[in-house]
C-alpha cells in the first residue's frame, strides 16, 4: 500500500507540473493548448542534447530546458496567438484548439524531419537508488519529483505574493478589469505562455531516463495533463496539483492490479464517472479563477 502511494506521488508530481502549466494558460489566456505534449517532447530533446551532446551537469540541463521552453512559449504567443487575438472574436477558444493542434503536428513532424524516428534516451542522470522505509526508487525519479514540488511551490508563491504574479491572476479573473488598472495584457500573455511551455519542457527533460526523446512521446503526456484538468475543473491551478497526484495514483493502481495496458482506459473511465456526477470537475466552482 505504501509502495503504491509513493509510486503514485513520484509519478504524479510531474503530471501536476504539466497540469499547472496547462491550467495557467487556460485560465489566463483562455487557450486550450493541445501542443502541450510537444512542448514536453522538445524538453526531452533539450535534456538529451544538453546531457549527452554537451555533457552538461543534469541540473544545468534542466535549467536550459526550462529556459528553452520559456523562449519557445513566448515566441509562440508573439508569432501565433497575438495576431490571432486581433482577428478572432467569438470563436477564440475553438480557434486556439485548432491552432495548437496544428502546431502540435508541425512540431512533431518537424522533429521527425530533423532527428528521425529513433529513440534517444539515457539510462539515468544520477546513478543509484534512494531507499525509504523499505521502498526504493531510482534517484532520477526522486529528483524529478523534488523538482516538480519546488517549481510548483515557487510558482504558487510567485502568483500569490509578487506584483507580476498577482497581475497574472487578475487577468485570469477579468481581463478588462486588469487593463483598467493599467496591466499590459501583452506582457502577461508572453510570460504566462512562456512559463507553461517552460514547465512542460522541464518535465520532459527531468523524465528523460523514463521516456526517451522521440517525436511522438508527448501524446500520452498531453492526455494525462488534460485528464487532470478535466478532473479538477478547467483553469484551476491549485486543484491541478492535487489532480496530478490523483491521476498518478489512478495509473499506479491500474498498473498494479490490471496491467499497464489498461491505464488510459482506467483513468478516462474514472474521468467520465466524475464528470457524470460533477460536470465542473472535482473542485469546479461558480466563481471563475485560476488560482485558489
Amino acid at each position: 500500500m505504501v509502495n503504491i502511494l509513493i509510486t503514485a506521488l513520484l509519478r504524479g508530481g510531474m503530471y501536476s507540473l504539466m497540469a499547472v502549466g496547462l491550467s495557467l494558460v487556460y485560465g489566463v489566456m483562455n487557450v486550450a493548448n493541445f501542443a502541450h505534449g510537444e512542448q514536453y517532447m522538445l524538453g526531452t530533446y533539450f535534456g538529451y542534447f544538453c546531457f549527452m551532446g554537451l555533457g552538461l551537469n543534469p541540473f544545468l540541463c534542466f535549467i536550459l530546458a526550462l529556459g528553452g521552453g520559456f523562449f519557445i512559449g513566448a515566441l509562440t504567443e508573439v508569432v501565433i496567438f497575438s495576431p490571432l487575438r486581433k482577428r478572432s472574436g467569438r470563436n477564440w477558444l475553438m480557434n486556439t484548439f485548432l491552432l495548437t493542434l496544428g502546431l502540435s503536428m508541425i512540431l512533431k513532424s518537424g522533429t521527425k524531419l530533423l532527428f528521425g524516428n529513433s529513440y534517444r534516451g539515457i539510462t539515468s542522470y544520477f546513478k543509484g537508488t534512494v531507499s525509504l522505509a523499505g521502498f526504493s526508487a531510482s534517484k532520477d525519479r526522486v529528483i524529478a519529483f523534488v523538482i516538480a514540488v519546488v517549481v510548483i511551490a515557487v510558482v504558487m508563491v510567485f502568483l500569490n505574493k509578487s506584483k507580476f504574479g498577482r497581475a497574472i491572476r487578475a487577468v485570469s479573473m477579468d481581463a478588462t478589469g486588469a487593463q483598467l488598472v493599467g496591466i499590459k495584457l501583452k506582457r502577461i500573455y508572453i510570460v504566462t505562455f512562456g512559463l507553461s511551455c517552460g514547465f512542460a519542457a522541464l518535465a520532459g527533460a527531468a523524465l528523460l531516463s523514463l521516456t526517451p526523446a522521440y517525436p511522438s512521446n508527448g501524446t500520452q503526456v498531453l492526455y494525462a495533463s488534460w485528464v487532470v484538468l478535466i478532473l479538477v475543473g478547467l483553469g484551476n491551478v491549485g486543484g491541478s496539483i492535487v489532480g496530478g497526484i490523483l491521476v498518478g495514483l489512478l495509473e499506479t493502481i491500474c498498473i498494479q492490479y490490471l496491467g499497464a495496458a489498461w491505464q488510459d482506459v482506467f483513468a478516462l473511465s474514472v474521468v467520465i464517472l466524475i464528470l457524470l456526477v460533477k460536470p465542473n470537475g472535482l473542485f469546479g466552482k461558480g466563481v471563475k479563477s485560476s488560482v485558489e
Partner: peptide, 30 residues
C-alpha cells in the same frame, strides 16, 4: 486601456470588472 490609468483617467464600468477570487485588499492594491 492599460495606458490610461497611468495618465490619470479611471473608468468604473457598470460590470465592475472586479477580481472576484481576490480579497478586497488585493483588489485595491491591484
Amino acid at each position: 486601456t492599460d495606458k490610461l490609468a497611468a495618465k490619470g483617467l479611471a473608468f468604473i464600468p457598470e460590470e465592475r470588472n472586479l477580481f472576484n477570487a481576490m480579497t478586497v485588499y488585493e483588489n485595491l492594491v491591484m
